[in-house]
Design a protein around this nucleic acid. Sequence first.
DNA 1: AGCGAGCCGTAC
DNA 2: GACGTACGGCTCGCTG
Length: 660
Amino acid sequence: MYLIFDTETDGLNIRTSKPFIVPYAVVDKNLNIVKIKIAHTNNDIEMQEFLQHLKDIPTIVGQNIKFDLHMMLNYGIDFNLIKDKNYIDIGVLARLVVDHDVQTDKTFQMSLKKLAVRYLGVDSANEERQLKMELSQLVMEHKAKMQQYFESYNLWPKYNKTENTKRINEVYNNWNKVFHLYPQLADKRRKFLKAYPEPTYADVSNVETYALTDVKLTYGLFKLWYPEVVRKQQVPAFKRTSEAVIPLLLMERQGFTVDVPRLMRDRKAILREWAKVKIIDPRTGEELNIGQHAKLKELYEYESGMQLTCADKDTRKSIEEKSPAARAANYIAKMEKYLSTYITGILNKLTEIDGEYKVFTQYNLAGTVTGRLSSDFQQFPRDPLELRDGSLIDIRGWFIVPKDYKYMFFLDYSQMELRLQCEWTNIIQGEPDLNLARAFSPYQCSLINGTYYLNENLNEAWKPTDLHALTAKHAFPNIDESHPDWNHYRSLGKRTNFAVNYGASPAAVASALNVPFKTAEDLVNGYRKAFPGAVAFAKWIRKRVWSIDNIPNLMFRRYYSRNSHQLLNWLVQGSGADILLEKLRKVYDYIQDKPHWQFMISVHDEVGYVVKDIPQEQLAQEVKEIQKLMTHSMTAVDIITDIEYSTTCWSDKKEWKNAL
DNA sequence: AGCGAGCCGTAC
DNA sequence: GACGTACGGCTCGCTG
């Protein structure tokens, strides 16, 4: 038996929003619907019936099912009711079953409605349109009401029509970006929203029809694709993803704790500095925003007298001396980015829970073609931004150890993709690329008196290969560490290694590294000489795609593709993704009876945790055990994590040396 | 006014 | 069709 369910809710916050209806379907083992109905959360009898199914049926099906689990927890169900289920997510099925070259096509979209149109021939766009129209009507009324509320307190001046629209939209939709411009409205705005909450789907008339349609579409895709998982030999990847649902659910509910005062100080510093610089078109006196790329490009061309292809930061940098506008834009762009994306973004999501400010994310299980997770926590800037007035804006410093906890721990895999690539060279050749392997371990070396020596030359001690130096030396045979510009050449080698691993051609290397084509060719040839195994891997893929319709990654997720260029990276990136998924479950099993450990974040090759104040010996032992659980052994080299920790904030993390 | 494409900037 | 995988904000043109 299978239980398909969905929830319609009063919001999208995974910790505070509540479901008001639970449409569901019970499906038998032949994949036929035996019951389909809606439980209203304010009707205990209906909910009892649904919860009995939830208790009895071991396999749960949904579209983005993790979100609905959050809603059920917010409704108040016992965690034990959901922790041992099998989970089937429609998006995950799509990623495993749909031809991967279709998935990368521009016309392929992952939303339930689009998938239903494409694969079931069912178009529910009208229902969705009606739902959205009704909600948008209610929102417009609500917005007008807010303005009237301000007017009734004489807080809203008579603007002309255009100005009024702009202002009320700002105040209504973009408050967290502009509140410093309207201090007189803050208190009343809060009071208004408390008295008259924003309309939600709960206020829309056709929401039940709409919700049932979603369940039917989910059922249709489930029935179509579930049998394909076996036929397409995707069971390992399918199970691994299903088993990661609960660990990720817990990670999402932990979220990040925010140092709001620090964030607000940084906001002020940026606004103060931003006010000093403007981008003005000298011909018209018009002020331009950083987002007006087309107009800015034209202005840069006018000021620099050069023909430009785009208006991005590299272009601006190259004409900075000639163009005052480019100079101004170079300074403003980063402040704009930080304010809009990070500061306003976090303020919009800020949730107060038990006296702490938190932000939450959701990990999309089906966000990528390779199997990686994706989330909006994956792009917090690493490096601080230094303003001209000396302030340092360090975004990762806004995230702090929550109360009741003492540590953050970050276990990140070291050079994960290079190690995986090394393993691939072993798979296809029967032996790993020697240079890659020796970057990470004394491969084909002999231990003599505590020192490793190379087997082919026992007079030479092993030391880890410097992969980037190696490419540089092969590219420029006359240059080595003694050259005054060695750092520059090594940097070229490093960037070439990354680019070529992603499939770059000499032309792309030339453009990315800003070097002549001939130099780029030398660099690419340097790479090819340095890592013959990697070259063989690319060649193996090109041959393999024509002999068979899929290639499994190292963890047996299969990519049905003939695109050898993309497979070059998919097979590496996807292997890493699957290892991480598997490790999340392993660690979850270990910390289940250790509630002083909680998952906090995961980004592609790292897992972050929060830990309570426990005895140091116990802490050291458990950290070690988790590192061990996260280690992935392979033929020539292992994939192993570094360990960092912090007792304050994310950006202050330091190496963990096993003794505090 | 709502939507979506395109551009840009951030992460691994 | 040729450096991979993502997400979010902004602008602008299209649509009705």
